[in-house]
């Protein structure tokens, strides 16, 4: 068997793939967090819960309504996005004029409530969710065996990230969003309905988290705590990429995912802390993050 730096090649490729998969979820989730933080200045602690809600929406649609994976990929983000819109309109929007800490506390409280509710209803154990028939099985790439669903997740998340980036950088709506991130009052004085833009942005961020949840359902199991396990790492990714930086969130998500995978091969003992070590170093050297702007 061939080896690279003394490591069997299939093990190395396998960990890189796992890193890419994890990185896909880091990127999708930190992207939504970055969009929300950029415009609303809210650190959305409910993001992990919204990811979990997306996975549960897919699970419930399948088991109670017979609606499968492909429609769930559209429906779950819409449902979770709609819930987020209601939360923003009725609660979060009242907190913008006071200390940002209150937005953090509210979303943290909401996360606990959602996770508690789902734990009460479904228990803490994971529920299986089968990948769609079209994406089950795997292919032999010659150097490694690739489960088709995992390849699909990497490709789909890349497409979603690039699509979101294009939406923000290249469209009129994105220009409103970028401008309002800099100076919301002036953009509103120009006649843009900024309160509605804030609502839509929160809905979009939560929808992205839910979409990641649906993609994750067949890989990790659907469980009430799947979000809180992930969200701490995702916050580290956002800090490394730079708070509010869209491109930073995407690139850092994938890079840190792969670095974490590689650490599992070369020095497994460090694999669960490597991202936080990188975060600490980045905070020391570049407090605004790798892609962040100093304010």
């Amino acid at each position: 068997m061939s080896t690279i730096f003394g490591i069997p090649a299939p093990a190395l490729y396998g960990q890189i793939l796992i890193g890419l998969i994890n990185g896909s979820f880091y990127a999708l989730l930190s992207l939504g967090l970055a969009v929300i933080f950029g415009l609303l200045r809210v650190i959305n602690f409910a993001h992990g819960a919204q990811y979990m809600l997306g996975a549960f929406a897919a699970y419930l649609l399948l088991n109670y309504a017979g609606i499968g994976y492909w429609p769930a990929l559209i429906l779950a983000p819409l449902i979770v996005g709609a819930v987020a819109v209601v939360i923003e309109r009725t609660m979060l929007s009242r907190l913008y004029s006071i200390d940002p800490l209150y937005g953090l506390l509210l979303t943290f409280g909401l996360a606990l409530i959602f996770e508690g509710m789902f734990r009460y209803w479904f228990g803490a154990a994971g529920k299986p969710y089968a990948p769609p028939a079209q994406l089950s099985g795997g292919i032999n790439l010659g150097f490694m065996f690739l489960p088709i669903y995992r390849g699909w997740v990497v490709v789909a998340s890349l497409v979603i990230c690039i699509g979101t980036w294009l939406l923000i950088e290249k469209t009129r709506l994105g220009a409103y969003l970028r401008a309002a991130t800099e100076n919301a009052t002036l953009v509103q004085a120009f006649g843009v309905n900024v309160p509605r833009l804030l609502t839509l942005t929160y809905g979009l961020g939560a929808g992205l988290a839910a979409l990641a949840g649906v993609l994750a359902a067949p890989i990790y199991q659907v469980s009430p705590l799947m979000g809180s396990n992930l969200i701490i790492i995702v916050f580290a990714v956002v800090v490394v990429g730079g708070m509010g930086s869209i491109l930073g969130a995407i690139v850092t998500g994938y890079v840190l995912g792969v670095l974490e995978g590689l650490t599992k091969v070369f020095y497994p003992e460090a694999s669960s802390i490597v991202i936080f070590v990188i975060m600490a170093i980045v905070l020391l050297v570049r407090p605004a993050g790798l892609f962040g702007r100093e304010e």
Partner: peptide
């Protein structure tokens, strides 16, 4: 606030309010 502009008042602030994250054409079209 956003309805005032729609009624026909256009505001050019003292600090000019040009957006750094937008290019000149995007600023113009904003």
């Amino acid at each position: 606030l956003h309805r005032v502009a729609q009624s026909g008042l256009g505001y050019v602030p003292e600090e000019r309010g040009i957006f750094a994250s937008l290019n000149v054409a995007e600023n113009l079209m904003l």
